[in-house]
Simulated assay, not measured.
Amino acid sequence: MTHELLRRRSVLGAVAGGGALATLAACSQESGEPAAAQPSAADGTTTTLRVALGWIKNVEWAGLWRADDAGYYAEEGLSIEWLQGGPNAPTVMASVAADSADLGIAAGQQSLLQSIPQGNDFVVVGSIFQDAPGSLLSLASRPVRSAADLKGQKVLGQEGTQPTIDALFRLAGMEPDYEFVTAAYDPGPLVEGQGVAYTCYLTNQPIILEQSYGLAESDYVVTPYSAMGIPQYASLIFGQRAFLDGNRDTVVKFLRASVRGWADNEEDPEVAAKLAVEKYGVDLGLDLEQQVQENELQIPLTESDLTRSAGMFRMDPALMAGEMYDALRAAQVTDLPDADSIIDMTLLDEVYANGTTL
């Protein structure tokens, strides 16, 4: 197996969209009201923070589970209400815009970006994953590592991923030239030879190839979109500007505790996997072995040159406005917000005021 990045989420049932192309809007409401304070046995007050997750309560949120279980949020005087996402839940953008959640963690960057010009005054304060795990999966006998390898070929994928494939061609200076074949979230059609590539999440379908089809790592190739010129942030933490302005200290505390949890997760990926299976996602029927494997493989996604020097969750507005926006425009995404105006790293500056080791 070849993959420069990693695999991502375990899909249980239908998943909305894929990668770069779901247009999601939400009606905005102004909310500068403080997060709810409740009595606490520890110091008299505990602030309840409602956090909407962009997916189900699986190991994708490993660092958050570690922080919550270890009491890091409680140490900051916070009680977190985790609002589960998934195919039957409102989008995180809709939840935050409607004041059903104080903060949201958007699994995909593009849907969040597209919701902002539609009347939502959202500000991003950090990104858990430094690159999204969307990728192309192919067999080692016919590897796909560039758009040129797709020319005139059949590409298997979920509806909504076609513009991403088109963008791969355009970024390579080519007109799109391929046949798109709709496929479900099982890569079986790839094994059967129905296409040369399959759109996937790096944390899901490669594991299925091994567990369900008996392929070895050397039997398949995973090429991340980022390796072909389409980088994106993922699991972006955001809120309404008015809420962030009115509750800055609370959000800083949330970020600080969350960073500690993700740092712990790097030390032992099995702990968070067990928490997902046995506690936070206990009703989801998650498989422990798969969750451990997913967590091991997603950890490098939290790292970049920027985070290694300046701390986890950091974002670079210039990278978003440059290479990331170029890729989105190649996918014919328009009306993108000004990156400098929607990214605020000053809260993380407070988190790391005394250094990047918390």
Rank of each mutant, 00 (worst) to 15 (best):
residue 1 M to T: 13
residue 5 L to V: 05
residue 7 R to Q: 07
residue 10 S to G: 04
residue 10 S to M: 10
residue 19 G to F: 12
residue 20 A to S: 04
residue 20 A to Q: 08
residue 24 L to D: 07
residue 25 A to E: 11
residue 28 S to E: 10
residue 29 Q to E: 14
residue 41 A to N: 02
residue 42 A to Q: 12
residue 42 A to F: 07
residue 43 D to R: 14
residue 45 T to A: 11
residue 47 T to R: 13
residue 49 L to I: 12
residue 57 K to P: 00
residue 62 A to W: 04
residue 66 R to N: 15
residue 73 Y to V: 04
residue 80 I to L: 15
residue 86 G to C: 04
residue 86 G to H: 03
residue 97 A to F: 07
residue 97 A to Y: 08
residue 98 A to L: 10
residue 98 A to Q: 14
residue 110 Q to S: 09
residue 113 L to T: 02
residue 120 N to F: 01
residue 124 V to A: 13
residue 124 V to S: 06
residue 127 S to Q: 05
residue 130 Q to E: 11
residue 139 L to R: 14
residue 139 L to H: 11
residue 141 S to R: 13
residue 141 S to C: 04
residue 152 G to S: 10
residue 160 G to V: 03
residue 169 F to T: 09
residue 172 A to Y: 05
residue 174 M to T: 04
residue 176 P to T: 04
residue 177 D to V: 01
residue 177 D to W: 09
residue 178 Y to F: 15
residue 181 V to S: 03
residue 188 G to T: 09
residue 192 E to K: 15
residue 195 G to V: 06
residue 196 V to I: 14
residue 202 L to E: 10
residue 206 P to M: 05
residue 208 I to K: 13
residue 210 E to M: 13
residue 215 L to R: 07
residue 216 A to H: 10
residue 218 S to H: 05
residue 218 S to K: 14
residue 220 Y to P: 10
residue 222 V to R: 08
residue 222 V to S: 11
residue 227 A to S: 14
residue 228 M to C: 08
residue 234 A to C: 05
residue 237 I to M: 11
residue 247 N to F: 10
residue 252 V to Q: 08
residue 253 K to R: 15
residue 256 R to S: 13
residue 263 A to T: 08
residue 267 E to C: 00
residue 268 D to A: 09
residue 268 D to S: 10
residue 271 V to E: 13
residue 272 A to E: 06
residue 273 A to N: 09
residue 274 K to R: 15
residue 274 K to G: 15
residue 275 L to C: 08
residue 276 A to D: 05
residue 281 G to D: 12
residue 282 V to L: 05
residue 282 V to W: 01
residue 283 D to P: 02
residue 296 E to F: 00
residue 296 E to D: 01
residue 299 I to Q: 07
residue 300 P to E: 04
residue 301 L to D: 00
residue 302 T to H: 06
residue 313 F to H: 03
residue 316 D to C: 10
residue 317 P to Y: 08
residue 319 L to Q: 14
residue 323 E to T: 14
residue 323 E to D: 14
residue 323 E to I: 12
residue 326 D to A: 15
residue 327 A to H: 06
residue 327 A to C: 06
residue 334 T to Y: 06
residue 334 T to L: 09
residue 336 L to R: 10
residue 338 D to T: 12
residue 341 S to W: 00
residue 342 I to D: 01
residue 342 I to G: 01
residue 343 I to E: 01
residue 344 D to C: 12
residue 353 A to Q: 10
residue 353 A to V: 09
residue 354 N to E: 15
residue 357 T to C: 00
